[in-house]
């Protein structure tokens, strides 16, 4: 089979831009990234679905000349679902803005604490603390030595 280089380059460009926007901190850019990725995915379906041809209307052309209708049907569904997803994400961004006053993706606080604990741990490598105490971070009040029951 043959492949159209122009379309492949467009695909590469769309996906690159989409991925790049996805990795941004602004929620709005992330949503734009998802929209562009959606466009890329629909185009992907078309490129993978064979070369262009006559529209798939029965009787208007011979079957061999027609474009494959199945990827088109799939892409049509995908377009509508991308729209639904975009709307929902926009509502989320809107809500985030209304509640927090910004639309930035924040770092996870718990994860950040783990990372800081690891950095602390590497700094104090020669400390003589017991591992269970250093990590678990809880210390029950030390009772007197065990009394046999």
């Amino acid at each position: 089979m043959t492949v159209n280089i122009t379309m492949v380059i467009v695909l590469a460009g769309l996906y690159t831009v989409g991925f790049y926007l996805l990795m941004q901190r602004s929620l709005m850019r992330v949503i734009l990234g998802i929209v562009i990725l959606g466009h890329g995915a629909n185009l992907f379906l078309q490129v993978a679905g064979g070369p262009p041809g006559e529209p798939a209307f029965v009787g208007s052309a011979v079957i061999q000349a027609m474009v494959d209708p199945l990827p088109q049907a799939l892409a049509l569904t995908a377009i509508v679902i991308t729209f639904a997803l975009t709307t929902f994400l926009l509502a989320l961004a809107y809500r985030s803005w209304a509640l927090l006053g910004h639309d930035e993706v924040q770092d996870d606080v718990e994860d950040r604490r783990i990372r800081e604990a690891a950095e602390r741990d590497e700094d104090s490598d020669d400390s003589d603390t017991e591992p269970s105490e250093a990590v678990a971070g809880f210390e029950a009040p030390e009772a007197s030595e065990e009394v046999p029951r």
Partner: peptide, 10 residues
Amino acid sequence: LSITGRLQAG
């Protein structure tokens, strides 16, 4: 801890 700290950067 160090693997989690690196992978789970948050």
